[in-house]
């Protein structure tokens, strides 16, 4: 995973709450076996509306998405994160995120900046006035900045998530440092717990 310390760029605003992952990447796109190539599917149903924010000419250069509360609810599909990244987004700012989406984002290196409702509303206003404004998401300082509008507001990001983003760490690598603890745990598991016979890997 690539390290992310700060994201600078244009932003796209979608003033809707409860944006579910079926909207972010419709199921028809989930048949790919790669992690790449999902950008054209991002919000594909909503993009049929010419006025949709992602259809603005400058949107293809955007790095930051600003959206309403409970962003990423619904399906666990990590493809939603890959689609946002493939399109060019490196950070999403919203008043709240669905749990699975947030976990997937941090795992894949997409910044989830949880800002207050007031901050997000202020960003909607700023971006309505000046769609070209540069928005900065500073992961190290946990601040959202729009210098041209004099906006500087904090956002929430758990310490561990911040550390992983800053360091670009491989979670599996970190966990495998605890390999002995995992093996000790396994030795203590009750014998009745279910397991499938390793030999019979294709059932009848």
């Amino acid at each position: 995973m690539r390290a992310v310390s700060r994201v600078d760029g244009r932003a796209v605003a979608i003033d809707r709450r409860d944006i579910d992952t079926d909207q972010i990447i419709p199921a028809a796109w989930l048949k790919r076996v790669e992690r790449t190539g999902f950008g054209p599917g991002l919000f594909s149903a909503w993009r049929s509306d010419p006025d949709f924010a992602l259809n603005a000419p400058a949107a293809s250069e955007a790095r930051v998405l600003v959206a309403g509360a409970n962003f990423g609810c619904g399906s666990s599909r990590e493809h939603a994160v890959w689609a946002l990244q493939d399109f060019g987004f490196e950070a999403v700012i919203a008043p709240s995120f669905a749990d699975i989406f947030r976990g997937n984002s941090i795992g894949a290196g997409l910044v989830t900046a949880q800002a207050s409702e007031e901050t997000v509303r202020a960003l909607f206003t700023v971006l309505a006035d000046d769609p070209q404004a540069t928005v900065t998401v500073d992961v190290a300082e946990r601040m959202v900045l729009v210098p041209s509008a004099g906006l500087a507001e904090p956002f929430a990001l758990p310490d561990y998530a911040r550390w992983r983003l800053l360091e670009g760490l491989d979670d599996i690598g970190i966990t495998l440092r605890h390999a002995d603890a995992i093996a000790d745990f396994e030795a203590r598991r009750p014998a009745w717990l279910p397991s499938s016979a390793p030999a019979a890997h294709i059932s009848a």
């Binding site: 994160v81 997937n104 795992g107 966990t175 995992i182």
Partner: peptide, 18 residues
């Protein structure tokens, strides 16, 4: 609970989750 694909890989490799 449901997990994403990066976590699926983590569980396959370690049988644990953070």
């Amino acid at each position: 609970f449901g997990i994403g694909t990066t976590e699926v890989e983590h569980v396959l490799a370690t049988q644990t989750l953070r």
